[in-house]
Amino acid sequence: MNVTRRQTFMLGAGAVAFATLGSQATIAFASEESDKLIAEFSGGKEATAGKIKLKAPEIAENGNTVPISFTVDSPMTADNHVASVMLLALGNPGPAVGTFNFTPMSGEAAASTRIRLAKTQEVLAMAKMSDGSIFMDKKTVKVTIGGCGG
């Protein structure tokens, strides 16, 4: 087949468009998964801001180990406590990070852990109270890529 320069260019453009569509599809897929996880966790209830505070670095020096922590404001009594907190890394290939289950014996609904972030993205923390109400907080973490490996 004879392919002119212009055709080559068109082919290239097509490939770019396809690649773009492809990556959008991946993003859509990941956010679909997040939506599903959120729906399952919240039981379809609307999340309200407040009560839960997520702490994450503004810039992570390495995406392999990003320290994050959260606290939820609650009396932690038998009839009024935090049941669980779900963490999602919305930009990771698999957004689920973990679900943390509390009891009145926890005394305080707070935890710290270290997570992997594949790229700059939003991290979401969602708390489910013993009465089923849902609260949420989000933080953007910039992940630096490049520099010296070794």
């Binding site: 392999n64 180990t65 990003v66 922590s69 932690m76 890394a89 990771n92 698999g94 957004p95 689920a96 990070v97 973990g98 943390f100 009145p104 014996m105 926890s106 005394g107 305080e108 609904a109 707070a110 935890a111 710290s112 852990t113 270290r114 997570i115 992997r116 972030l117």
Partner: peptide, 15 residues
């Protein structure tokens, strides 16, 4: 889930 870092670290409270 797999998004937890190697050598998983956990800090929490207990009454």
């Amino acid at each position: 889930e797999p998004s937890v870092s190697a050598n998983p670290y956990m800090q929490f409270k207990a009454k």
